[in-house]
């Protein structure tokens, strides 16, 4: 499904702040896998997502999606096949528009945005049903501007909007990090359900080791632009937080954290 081949990435190239993150980094994700990625700050998790999503160029290497070379494809073109939920709940919705308007925009993804009317009263019932499943009371706020919703509500909406249309790959960029523990749990369960129901391939970056262990069927730990733990299937099932915590602590001490 997704393949990163021999990626090189150096920040601030040619300045005193030059720092090399990836040298010959390779990583691949088969169809239907739900990968959790953990690692300390600066380990390259988010950079990896930025590289896959197309918001950051690479110095060398190749990115393949379903065998197609997408290395030089601009972010908006990749977005037609790759969905992404950001850490900041504000990035997945338009604050000035209502819940209904945001959903209508997302529903049309993949089709042209021309001079047809954006809102269709017939869709309202299906939106209400969709939102009612969340149990966050969003179905009663259909006409409320999204800017007035809480972070959790907005993130749930972002997740729904991202997965409303068919995508090949879902990127989750610490998408529960800005939420309170209870809301984070709700969003995490919602994520798990959506990924299962839609049989999505997903990569989730998280700082929460428990989520990484509990959810998904592969766990990857990164450090200094490399992979230090990579467990799949039964090996992953057997993994506990304590198992990875030791490695995590060792890495962190090494980094001086």
């Amino acid at each position: 499904m997704l393949e990163l081949q021999q990626i090189d990435k150096t920040f601030h190239r040619g300045t005193v702040n030059e720092s090399c993150l990836f040298r010959g980094f390779s990583f691949s994700v088969p169809v239907g896998q739900f990968v959790s990625v953990v690692g300390s700050n600066g380990s390259g998790k988010t950079t990896m997502l930025n590289i896959i999503g197309g918001s950051m160029p690479i110095d060398a290497g190749k990115i393949l999606l379903d065998g197609q070379d997408i290395t030089h494809m601009p972010e908006y073109r990749r977005a037609r096949r790759i969905g992404r939920v950001f850490q900041d709940p504000a990035r997945g919705t338009v604050p000035q528009l209502t819940v209904e308007e945001n959903l209508a925009l997302a529903k049309n993804k993949g089709k042209p945005y021309r001079l047809g009317f954006a809102l269709n009263r017939n869709d309202l019932a299906s939106y209400t049903e969709l939102l009612a499943q969340l149990g966050l009371g969003l179905e009663e706020k259909m006409q409320v501007p999204v800017g007035l919703l809480s972070g959790g509500q907005r993130q749930a909406l972002s997740l729904l909007m991202t997965t409303m249309t068919d995508i090949d790959l879902l990127l989750l960029d610490e998408h529960t990090a800005a939420l309170d523990p209870k809301t984070a749990e709700i969003i995490m369960q919602l994520t798990d359900r959506v990924v299962r129901e839609k049989k999505l391939t997903a990569i989730m970056v998280t700082h929460n080791l428990r989520y990484a262990v509990e959810y998904g069927n592969r766990l990857v730990m990164m450090n200094k632009g490399g992979i230090v733990i990579d467990r799949t299937g039964a090996e992953k099932e057997a993994l506990t937080v304590d198992d990875i915590l030791d490695t995590f602590n060792a890495i962190s001490i090494e980094c001086g954290n």
């Binding site: 977005a79 990035r91 338009v94």
Partner: peptide, 14 residues
Amino acid sequence: KATGGNEQLVISLG
């Protein structure tokens, strides 16, 4: 309106 409100969403919509 989305471009003014949140450019990232327009990009995410392809």
